[in-house]
Design a protein around this nucleic acid. Structure first.
Length: 601
RNA sequence: GGGGACGUAGUUCAGUUGGUUAGAACGCUGCCCUGUCACGGCAGAGGCCGCGGGUUCGAGUCCCGUCGUCCCCGCCA
C-alpha cells in the first residue's frame, strides 16, 4: 500500500495502485505522489532509466488511477522528505498502467484550502478522498468496533429491531413510509428502538445492544442530522449505577481506540445543581461554574441597579479574555437570550466604578483574575413577581421557574462567551491530557415532568416509560412537579452524548404516568396497547441508555459538525446534494400507494 | 415558523463612493526544465457576477423578491 513502504523494503519489487495526488514534472524526471487510503508514496519516472515509461508518465494528471510497478529505492540523504512517513523511500517505476483517467475535478483532495460545503456534499466521493475525511471515517470504524467488542465482552447481544415500525405521536416528528398493501396506512421509521428494546427485556434477552440508525424529522443543527446512529442498550435488573458502569466501560474502550486513556467513574451531578451552577442540563465542565453574587450587593445597590432582589445574581466568569473595547462589550449584548425578564450587565467595569465595594466583593467571590471577563445576569426588578408567579405548577421546585429563567439565560451566555473568545482563553484547545480534554459527567435526578406552557399540561421530560424515583411514587398524582425520574444523561464537554433511564416495569405505574400526562385509558391503549399488554406478562425491572455515536466520533475527531464524521450527510434543509434526495415520485407510484399530494403554495 | 451570514473564473477569494476592457491565487492547456516533494520558469484559455424584477444615463455594487449553503432560536419524548 502507498503508506506502508519503509527503508527496510528497499530492493523489493512492488506494485502500487492509487490516485495521482500531485505530480512534479521536471522534464526528464517526473515525480508523482501516489495516494491511497494508507498514505502517499513518491513514484519516480526517469527518462534516463526508462524512456518508454517516462513518456507515458507525461500524460498523468491529477486523480488518474494508476498502477506503478517497480523497485523500492532508499532515497539519497539529501532527497529525504521528513514530512511524510514514506519520505525515506521512493518507487522507481519500471512499468506504468493507467487504470482510469479523470477529467478536471471541481476541487482536488490535495487542495490546501477547503471547498465550500455545498461543493463537498455534491461531490462527496471526491471530498471523502481527502486525508481528513479518510481519517474520520476510519476513526468512526475503530470506535464502533471497539464498542461492539466491549459490549459483547460485557455479555450483551447485538439484536436488530425493525426500521419499518409504528408511528408514535409523542416526541419528534416521524418519517413515514406508506404501505402499498395497506393503502392509507403508514409505517414510521424509528426515532429510537425504545419499545422494541424494552420488549426484548420482556423476552428474556437480558442484555441487548445495537449500533442502530434512528430517524427524526426535526430541523437540523451542526450536531443534529435527520438520520443518526445510536449506541442503544438495555439490561434487566439494573440500578442506574450498573448502566453507568457499562457505559463507562465501552466509552473507555472507544476512547482507547482513538488513542485516549480516560478515567472512570465519571463525576455525577444532580439536575438541580447543574442548573444552579451552569444554567443548563449539559454543563461544559471545562469552563468555570457560575457564582451567585447576590450577597455582594447591599439592598440599596440592588434597588439602584433595578435588580430583582429575590432572584439570583449570576456572575459569569470567562477566563483570560482580557480588556474589552467599547465595541466588543456591545457585541456581547446580541449573544444574550433573555428568558423570563433576565437582564445582562455586560460592562462590569461600570458597576465597579459606581459600586466599588460590591465590585470588589464580586471579584473576590468569583476568584476572577485581572484578565478574566465578568458579566452579570440578573432578574429584572420591574418584572416583580410575574416570572416567579407562585401559582405556577412548578413553583415549589428547588429551582423555581423564575430562577430557572435567570439560570438558563446565563447558561446560554456562558457558553456563547466562551465560544466567542475561544482563541483568547484556549480552554477548548486539546492539551493532550484526557482528564482536561474530555470532561465527562453524569447528570441525574431529572424532574419527571416538564410543564408545557402552551398546552398547559405536564409532559414527560425524558419519555413516558421512565420510572419515577421510588420515594416520589406517591406524588405522581398529588404533586407531579416534585417527582424525580430515574433518568440520567451522559455529558461530554457540554454535549449531551446520551440519555437513559430505569424503565417502568409495572403496568399500574405505567397507567398512572399516562394519567399524569393527561392521557385517557383509551388513548394509551390505542397508542401503546401492545406494550401495555406485554407489561402484564411478567416483565423484569429493566433500564438502559442510548448514546449518539456520531457525536462521540465528532468530538474525538475534533470536528464542529456531524457532517465531518458521516460519509453521506444531509444539509440543513435535510437534502442529500449528491443523490439529490428527496425527490417527487411518479404519479403511478403514488396511485399505487393511494396517496394524493397537495403542494402548499 | 423566526433571526443572521454568505453566493463573482473549475475552486478559494478580492472588487473602493454606482462609472472605461471584472482581478489574484490555485487548478486547467501548451512549451522549457534530471532531485522535486505546496517544484520552478514562460505563454495561454477560462465569467449569465446564483436567478427574476426594479431604481438609474449607467448596477457585480443600491432596492424588492426568489433559490441555494451555513450558523442560531423555536423544535428535537
Amino acid at each position: 500500500m502507498c503508506g506502508a513502504l519503509r527503508p527496510s523494503d528497499a530492493g523489493k519489487k512492488v506494485v502500487l495502485m492509487g490516485w495521482v495526488n500531485r505530480r512534479r514534472d521536471l522534464g526528464s524526471i517526473i515525480f508523482v505522489d501516489l495516494r491511497d487510503r494508507t498514505g502517499v508514496t513518491q513514484v519516480v519516472f526517469n527518462r534516463e532509466l526508462n524512456a518508454a515509461v517516462h513518456d507515458k508518465a507525461e500524460d498523468l494528471r491529477n486523480e488518474f488511477v494508476i498502477a506503478a510497478i517497480g523497485t523500492v529505492k532508499k532515497r539519497d540523504a539529501d532527497t529525504i522528505n521528513p514530512n511524510i512517513p514514506t519520505g525515506e523511500v521512493e518507487l522507481v517505476t519500471e512499468e506504468l498502467r493507467i487504470l482510469n483517467v479523470s477529467k478536471q475535478l471541481p476541487f482536488l483532495p490535495s487542495d490546501t484550502v477547503l471547498a465550500n460545503e455545498e461543493m463537498r456534499l455534491k461531490y462527496r466521493y471526491i471530498d471523502l478522498r481527502r486525508d481528513a475525511m479518510q481519517f474520520n471515517i476510519e476513526l468512526r470504524h475503530k470506535v464502533a468496533l471497539a464498542i461492539r467488542d466491549n459490549l459483547a465482552s460485557q455479555g450483551f447481544f447485538e439484536i436488530e429491531t425493525p426500521f419499518m415500525t409504528r408511528s408514535t405521536p409523542e416526541g419528534a416528528r416521524d418519517y413515514l413510509v406508506p404501505s402499498r398493501v395497506q393503502p392509507g396506512s403508514f409505517y414510521a421509521l424509528p426515532q429510537s428502538p425504545q419499545l422494541f428494546k424494552q420488549i426484548l427485556m420482556i423476552s428474556g434477552f437480558d442484555k441487548y445492544f445495537q449500533i442502530v440508525r434512528c430517524f427524526r424529522d426535526e430541523d437540523l443543527r451542526a450536531d443534529r442530522q435527520p438520520e443518526f446512529t445510536q449506541i442503544d442498550l438495555e439490561m434487566s435488573y439494573p440500578q442506574p449505577e450498573r448502566v453507568w458502569e457499562v457505559v463507562e466501560g465501552f466509552l473507555t474502550a472507544a476512547f482507547k481506540a482513538a488513542g485516549h486513556e480516560i478515567k472512570t467513574p465519571f463525576p455525577r451531578m444532580d439536575y438541580d445543581d447543574a442548573i444552579r451552577q451552569y444554567g443548563i442540563d449539559k454543563p461544559d465542565l471545562r469552563l468555570p461554574a457560575f457564582t451567585d453574587v447576590r450577597d455582594c450587593f447591599t439592598p440599596a445597590d440592588l434597588e439602584q441597579l433595578a435588580i430583582n432582589k429575590d432572584l439570583p445574581v449570576i456572575a459569569i466568569r470567562t477566563p483570560g479574555v482580557g480588556e474589552l473595547s467599547r465595541k466588543e462589550r456591545d457585541d456581547i449584548k446580541p449573544l444574550f437570550v433573555s428568558k423570563g425578564g433576565a437582564r445582562v450587565f455586560e460592562d462590569f467595569k461600570r458597576i465597579e466604578n459606581k459600586f466599588a465595594e460590591a465590585g470588589a466583593k464580586v471579584r473576590q467571590k468569583t476568584g476572577a483574575a485581572a484578565d478574566d471577563l465578568l458579566v452579570l445576569v440578573v432578574g429584572s426588578a420591574q418584572a416583580g413577581k410575574t416570572p416567579g408567579r407562585d401559582d405556577h405548577p412548578a413553583a415549589k421546585r428547588k429551582v423555581t421557574p423564575a430562577e430557572l429563567a435567570i439560570y438558563a439565560s446565563a447558561g446560554i451566555l456562558r457558553v456563547a462567551l466562551a465560544q466567542k473568545y475561544a482563541d483568547r482563553h484556549g480552554i477548548f484547545q486539546k492539551s493532550g491530557d484526557p482528564g482536561k480534554d474530555f470532561r465527562f459527567l453524569w447528570v441525574t435526578n431529572f424532574p419527571m415532568f416538564e410543564y408545557d406552557e402552551a398546552d398547559r399540561r405536564w409532559v414527560a421530560a425524558h419519555h413516558p416509560f421512565t420510572s419515577p424515583h421510588d420515594e416520589d411514587m406517591d406524588k405522581l398524582e398529588s404533586d407531579p412537579a416534585m417527582v424525580r425520574a430515574l433518568a440520567y444523561d451522559v455529558v461530554l464537554n457540554g454535549t449531551e452524548l446520551g440519555s437513559g433511564s430505569v424503565r417502568i416495569h409495572r403496568q399500574d405505574i405505567q397507567r398512572k404516568i399516562f394519567h399524569a400526562l393527561g392521557m385517557t385509558e383509551e388513548e394509551a391503549r390505542s397508542r401503546f396497547g401492545f406494550f401495555l399488554e406485554a407489561l402484564e406478562y411478567g416483565t423484569p425491572p429493566h433500564g438502559g441508555i442510548a448514546l449518539g455515536l456520531d457525536r462521540i466520533v465528532m468530538i474525538l475527531a475534533g470536528a464542529d459538525s456531524l457532517r465531518e464524521v458521516i460519509p453521506f450527510p444531509k444539509t440543513a434543509a435535510a437534502k442529500d446534494l449528491m443523490v439529490e434526495a428527496p425527490t417527487p415520485v411518479a404519479e403511478g407510484q403514488l396511485r399505487e400507494l393511494g396517496i394524493g399530494v397537495v403542494v402548499k403554495k
